[in-house]
Amino acid sequence: MSSKDKVIEVEHVYFSYEDVPVLEDICFSVEKGDFCVIIGPNGGGKTTLLKLLLGILKPDRGIIKVLGKNPRDVRQKLGYLPQHTDFKLSFPISVMDVALMGRLNKRRLGKRFTDEDRKKVEEILKMLDIWEYRHLHVGRLSGGQRQRVFIARALATEPEILFLDEPTAGVDPEHETGLYEILKELNKKMTIIVITHDIGVISRYARSIACVNRKLVFHEEGKITKEMLEMAYECPVDLIAHGIPHRVLPEHN
């Protein structure tokens, strides 16, 4: 595999908040077309890693290359679903306005949105089953509906790499499966990096897994191993697989 096919390359990256080390000596790479799932305990540095890859945070040491460049230089090619979507709930903004925001990267500063932009957003909203809410105030939607609005916004950027930070937090199970099916479909066109606590997702969708708990262990195959669980979690894990209800794995040492 030549380095051309690597969309993300991370070498010896360190990051700390003030004096608290969050990530240490992170090395991994993601290939084009991957469906990479990032797992790990709370506070393990998953979101921090994502923000480093998006160019929001700057590493203390090490090199991060996204699409062969500094993440800051390829921001227009990245889509991002933040972890929290329940902010500024009284802000006067409609579903359509939020989704259109994703088109801003295609428009130069000061230019109006075009019919093409609206068409694209319409397509995405319909795909995510929220077209009927397009005129509603985002703050008045349920958590799951709002989550889909923000996914629509990330998709509206037509990214080469789509980053999702816990996309199914607050989404009901029916929509959760639907969402991952959509992501699977999108994965044909773009690389997907997703943080999730739902280990069941991995067995069905992941092509690679990154376990993050201050350090990172990368698994090129999307299978959960005992070591992976031990590394990622320092506590008992409840693992519920799709199709087999309540298959709980035994406590590991």
């Binding site: 998006l54 160019g55 929001i56 921001r75 227009q76 990245l78 991002y80 933040p82 902010f87 500024k88 802000f91 903004i93 306005d97 939020v98 259109l100 925001m101 994703g102 801003l104 990267n105 428009r107 500063l109 000061g110 109006r112 949105f113 916004r153 950027t157």
Partner: peptide
Amino acid sequence: KELLAISYDEEFSYVIGI
């Protein structure tokens, strides 16, 4: 468009290059 985006979600605005 840009002012709306920044006012609503500064981090996202930054990510997409505003």
